[in-house]
């Protein structure tokens, strides 16, 4: 069904594994198509309440596959056709998306991780803003997400100097949620994803939608957006369940609706 990725579901979580380990999971046009398809499937599947994106082998994703690089291509069009819709698909997917960074995340591979809602890093993981080393500009949302994640000054350092950021350094910058020892990485990611998948998914989706929107809204708009979101969340099963569980002093059982 897929050639360049693996799509698996278990315990309410969709696992999307970039699967070109011999190429350090570098992007190809087919991988873009397959990733977007997988995200669409995860979006439509009501059983799925969290998504994990990770890499097969020793890398998370090394960015654009330069070995097939066609110098006659307009890179802008490559972005518009492949990378930009992928980033939009992650942002508009109203379920939590976790980047499980198992190894190096370079160039657009780092951008992919930055666009996700959570980043869990293996102790083996690293980030490299590799673009500058080939005379290019960070893309695929990198210039949008990086300054928002680490602040403008640090983002400039990372984007311009292009130095490797180890997992522990990334944690110190607030770039990742957690650094996990490599031996227990998969099980810890799984536990985190399953936990998210048992939470009130609709509310998480609304938080994600309006937190993104807040970056180009003023306070008046955010206050109104919160009111609109609360009208919606207030009508969900999970809200009623949360309140009943609180009153009855029991653990809530959320269904994501």
């Amino acid at each position: 069904m897929y050639e360049t990725i693996i799509y698996e579901t278990r315990a309410g979580v969709a696992w999307v594994t970039l699967n070109r380990p011999e190429k350090l999971n570098a992007f190809t046009p087919l991988m873009h198509k397959e990733l977007q398809k997988a995200l669409k499937v995860a979006e439509r599947d009501e059983e799925i309440r969290a998504v994990v994106i990770t890499g097969a082998g020793r890398a998370f994703c090394s960015g654009q596959d330069l070995s097939n690089d066609d110098q006659t291509l307009d890179y802008g069009d490559v972005l518009r056709e492949g990378y930009n819709p992928l980033i939009q698909a992650i942002v508009s997917l109203e379920k939590p998306v976790i980047a499980a960074i198992n190894g190096v995340a370079a160039g657009a591979g780092a951008s992919l991780a930055f666009a996700c809602d959570f980043r869990l890093a293996s102790s083996q993981a690293s980030f490299i803003e590799a673009f500058i080393h080939v005379g290019l500009v960070p893309d695929s949302g990198n210039l949008y997400f990086l300054p928002r994640l680490v602040g403008h000054a640090k983002a400039m350092e990372l984007a311009v100097l292009g130095e490797k950021v180890r997992a522990d350094e990334a944690a110190a910058l607030g770039l990742v949620t957690n650094v996990i020892e490599d031996e227990i990485f998969v099980s810890q990611v799984e536990a985190f994803a399953v936990r998210l998948a048992s939470m009130p998914t609709k509310a998480i989706g609304l938080i994600k939608r309006y937190m993104h929107k807040s970056w180009d809204s003023d306070l008046t708009e955010v206050l109104e957006d919160e009111a609109i979101a609360q009208s919606t969340a207030g009508q969900t099963y999970d809200h009623k369940e949360g309140v009943s569980a609180f009153m009855e002093k029991r653990k809530p059982s959320f269904i994501g609706k």
């Binding site: 939608r209 957006d225 609109i228 979101a229 009208s231 919606t232």
Partner: peptide, 9 residues
């Protein structure tokens, strides 16, 4: 422009 859940309301 309104949240999809609220447009009709």
């Amino acid at each position: 422009v309104i949240a999809p859940e609220r447009v009709v309301d």
